[in-house]
Design a protein around this nucleic acid. Structure first.
Length: 852
RNA sequence: GCCGGAGUGGCGGAAUUGGCAGACGCACCGGACUCAAAAUCCGGCGGGCUAAUCACCCGUGGGGGUUCGAGUCCCCCCUCCGGCACCA
């Protein structure tokens, strides 16, 4: 007998929707809980990663609801982005149409999973009613000086025909299409995230509910380092060059200086000299290199002598200035004092170009000589060759030398960050337009607030080259709001990471028409109590969202510092790959008994890796739901692995979960008469009744605690165990009291299971004569006294090895237990002829006897 | 190179503060039901030794240590995964 999941799931999805079971309203008298899963990009269909992510979130949301919280559990669409535009180019379909039809399909898929969203709060970021608030915030940020426009060398992806943020470049390749990234000079807009570097870093130490891994990644990304900026005067040139160093203690050992090719002084120093021609050639040869090859692993260090010298501010010696390929323009000041004795890169450079090496730090009890060194000494030690700083430790010298530089006005203590401002300009159509106008007379003019939103135009051609917005006359040609002359509208659109930086706030009052969100409602629902999503967003999205929240706070929109209280990064969904020599990668359904269905060739089973379309090791959620139902699909993705770990997909494992659901179904149906009977039995001291009570209360406790700790796999295991026990108990039932408790246990069991397999539980609840929805029932409570058995089994160890077991009453005292242990027949054998030197009793667990 | 995380049966994975390693599921084996099969129900299932499901020994990547007792704590090493990486 199998249950009819198709009919059952459709029925309950409809009922939930008709009765607005998961609608949530602002109600400051109720305790709230905000459960959020990262919203998807509407690419067409959901994949198993979504199923897992949303199943996890749904368990939490439903659990908290049954626990009595006013749960905000919303869903929406990260709807701007390149694929829509690529589809437009390829299929001549407008990005909006493509996007909205995908949304419709995916929404239906999510509904089929029975997720407890309040769909009335759905948002799509491509909706002008959504992005107009982003444009408003842009204007406020601009006013406050948090946005600027500058010309810069940017990462450019030829394939996507757009600029990429540093965060979107992975291994020198485009994060989206893996095309090689090249460099291009372009004008663009920047958010001053660096203004918040310190605070973003500081709060990584306060986010206690976040995985350490993610916090570490963010800290590395922000990359704070302490050091000094030091000015070097150029010989015969009325200019100074400032360097940043974390090692001011080594300043006496600085024997040359290095400039990034992009540094303004690189060209300046050689201008009009005999070095100019060669130098420019050198600079250009490096600049035209793309990012990957320039930052390649063991890239050879190359330099060009400018013919110029600067004075080491402490030794007063003239030291040569080189332009070098390994100096980064966007870290520090783009200029470096080179200390070959104590920095490996500089050491290699000095060897190659035969430059002076001066040791200024000796390791404790050792004396370094440059001619004997085969590598730089980067450790701690005692200062030498450093004038009045000789003899002290280099750590002390760091402070002392910096202080001296400050007194002499040639340097200052600084803090440097690796984090750079967030370039948000994208030369694409399908994004939120940047609300500014370029006027020949007035310069950059913000669009007046009353003219928002700046909507995307429709008279656009998608040819695949250049920014489509440039081709829209209607969009581009405007009058200057200030002086009224002909002007041009900005055609850059914003990075789609901007929309996802505040969607969680919009969910709090998605229909608010007077502001980005209703402050009161947002302050009620925020923070997000639990955020769940993929670890791939550990840096990009999560850092931007934190930044944006702080900006909104400083603009007075909301009074919170951080948006996400707790974060769970779920693992990937993986599966083994299949391939055959004729047809390459194969879908699982193309494999039949180890043979390729297409050509009949032997199939090669590859290693388990992340499900991906390219390797075809995917399971289609639609097919899965059709075959097993949503409840089974959900249950397996929750049971097969702990949420934060990778999950290996297994068809047989899914089968096992399906069997389990059917097992409960049968247990229920077989006892339907019992379940529908109203018992009113007196308490009875029967062994079986006690057994039932124990299993029931123990399981309620276990499942409740496990869900709180996000151990969803063991929560499911506990319910499976209970089911197994109930199967064994069922044939033994005799008295009314036992039946009454058995019934109670069955009812509680399906309540515990409701967050995992909600449709199925609703059906059993209604079969049992339950009123309303089990989804709205109160979560079962347990009584501690029933979670322990009357009798406990104590293990007896002799010298650390378990030799026997005894059964004792649960509250047995130490002496009685020890006496019983000593008198145990088996144990006596081990004690014979030995001296008992120590006795340990661990209540309820074991007894340990030590003999000699 | 630096920073994180992880190594447990044939497999996925369990194990409060150190307290009977292997819960639960998969696979496999046996039994019941059946003319038979499937489904279902019951039972077994780390390795060695053994006639034995008696007893004993070994066993959580490897080697040491602390402890009555270590998957768990400490030291050293190996392997794998993830992130960052010429960051001055």
């Amino acid at each position: 007998m199998h249950y009819d999941f198709l009919q059952i799931e459709n029925k309950w999805q409809k009922k939930w929707e008709e009765n607005k079971v998961f609608k949530v309203n602002y109600d400051k008298n109720k305790p709230k809980y905000y459960c959020l899963e990262m919203f998807p990009y509407p690419s067409g269909k959901i994949h198993m990663g979504h199923v897992r992510n949303y199943a996890i979130g749904d368990v939490i949301a439903r659990f908290k609801k049954m626990k009595g919280f006013n749960v905000l559990h919303p869903m929406g669409w990260d709807a701007f982005g390149l694929p829509a535009e690529n589809a437009a180019i390829k299929n001549k379909i407008h990005p909006a149409k493509w996007t909205y039809s995908n949304i419709d399909y995916m929404r239906a898929q999510l509904k089929q999973l029975g997720l407890s969203y309040d769909w009335d709060r759905e948002v799509a970021t491509c909706d002008p009613e959504y992005y107009k608030w982003e444009q408003l915030v842009f204007l406020k940020m601009y006013e406050k000086g948090l946005i600027y426009r500058k010309k810069s060398t940017v990462n450019w992806c030829e394939d996507c025909n757009t600029v990429l943020a540093n965060e979107q470049v992975e291994d020198g390749k485009c994060w989206r299409c893996s095309n090689e990234v090249t460099m291009k000079e372009i004008n663009g807009w920047f958010f001053k995230i660096t203004d918040y570097a310190e605070e973003l870093l500081e709060y990584t130490y306060k986010l206690e509910g976040w995985p350490e891994k993610v916090l570490t990644m963010q800290r590395n990304w922000i990359g704070k380092s302490y050091g000094a900026e030091i000015d070097f005067e150029v010989k015969g040139f009325d200019r100074k060059i400032t360097v940043f160093t974390t090692r001011p203690d080594t300043l006496f050992g600085a024997t040359f200086m290095l400039l990034a090719p992009e540094h303004e002084m690189s060209k300046e120093l050689i201008k009009g000299t005999s070095y100019e021609e060669e130098g420019l050639k050198f600079i250009n040869s490096i600049l035209k290199e793309d990012k990957i090859s320039r930052s390649a692993d063991n890239k050879e260090k190359k330099g060009f002598f400018t013919g110029r010298y600067v004075y080491n501010p402490l030794t007063k010696k003239e030291i040569p200035v080189y332009i070098a390929n390994y100096i980064l323009i966007d870290y520090g000041t783009g200029a470096v004092m080179a200390v070959p004795a104590h920095d490996q890169r500089d050491f290699e450079f000095a060897k190659k170009y035969n430059l002076e090496i001066t040791v200024v730090i000796n390791p404790e009890g050792q004396e370094l000589a440059p001619e004997n060194m085969s590598e730089a000494y980067t450790g701690q030690g005692i200062m030498v060759n450093s004038g009045k700083f000789n003899g002290i430790s280099n750590e002390e010298a760091k402070t002392k030398i910096t202080e001296f530089l400050e007194e002499e006005n040639i340097g200052k203590k600084t803090v440097n960050f690796r984090l750079r401002d967030w370039g948000i300009s994208r030369q694409r159509y399908w994004g939120a337009p940047i609300p500014v106008i370029h006027c020949k007379k007035c310069g950059i003019v913000p669009v007046p607030e009353k003219d928002l939103p700046v909507r995307l135009p429709l008279d656009v051609e998608f040819t695949g080259s250049g920014n489509p917005l440039e081709t829209s006359a209607e969009f581009k040609n405007v009058k200057c709001p200030l002086c009224g002359i002909d002007a041009e509208r900005e055609t850059d659109t914003m990075d789609t990471f901007v929309e996802s930086s505040w969607y969680f706030l919009r969910y709090c009052s998605p229909k608010c028409s007077t502001n980005i969100f209703d402050k009161e409602e947002a302050e009620y629902f925020m923070n997000v109590d639990q955020y769940i999503g993929g670890v791939e967003h550990a840096i990009l999205h999560l850092l931007y969202a934190r930044f944006f929240t702080k900006v909104l706070r400083d603009l007075g929109y909301i009074n919170i510092d951080e948006p996400f209280e707790r974060l769970l990064t779920q693992g990937m969904v993986c599966k083994e790959t299949y391939s055959c020599k004729n047809d390459g990668w194969l879908f699982p359904e193309d494999v039949d008994e180890g043979k390729c269905k297409i050509c009949g060739e032997q199939v090669v089973v590859g290693r388990v890796e992340k499900m991906s379309k390219s390797k075809k090791n995917v399971v289609d959620p639609d097919a899965l739901i059709k075959r097993y139902g949503a409840d089974t699909a959900r249950l397996f993705s929750l049971f097969a692995a702990p949420p934060e770990k990778d999950l290996e997909w297994s068809e047989q494992g899914v089968d096992g979960c399906y069997r389990f659901i059917n097992r409960i179904f049968r247990l229920f149906v077989n006892n339907l008469e019992l379940i529908k009977t109203e018992y009113n039995a007196e308490y009875e001291d029967s062994k079986l009744a006690k057994d039932i009570l124990y299993h029931m209360h123990f399981t309620i406790k276990k499942v409740t605690n496990d869900i709180e700790k996000f151990q969803l796999n063991t929560a499911v295991a506990a319910i499976m165990e209970l089911t197994n026990n109930l199967y064994l108990i069922e044939p033994k039932l005799s008295t009314d009291y036992e039946k009454q408790k058995f019934k109670e246990c069955l009812i509680n069991m399906i309540k515990l299971l409701t967050p995992f397999t909600p449709h199925f539980c609703e059906e059993l609840w209604s079969l049992a004569g339950g009123k309303g929805f089990i989804s709205l029932e109160k979560w079962p409570e347990y009584e501690e006294k029933y979670t322990v058995k009357d009798e406990i089994t104590l293990a007896i160890q002799v010298n650390g090895k378990v030799r026997a077991e005894i059964v004792m009453p649960k509250d047995v005292d130490k002496e009685t237990a020890l006496k019983a242990a000593r008198e145990n027949e088996k144990i006596m054998g081990y004690l014979e002829g030995k001296t008992l030197v120590k006795e340990i009793y661990v209540p309820g667990k074991l007894i340990s006897l030590v003999v000699k």
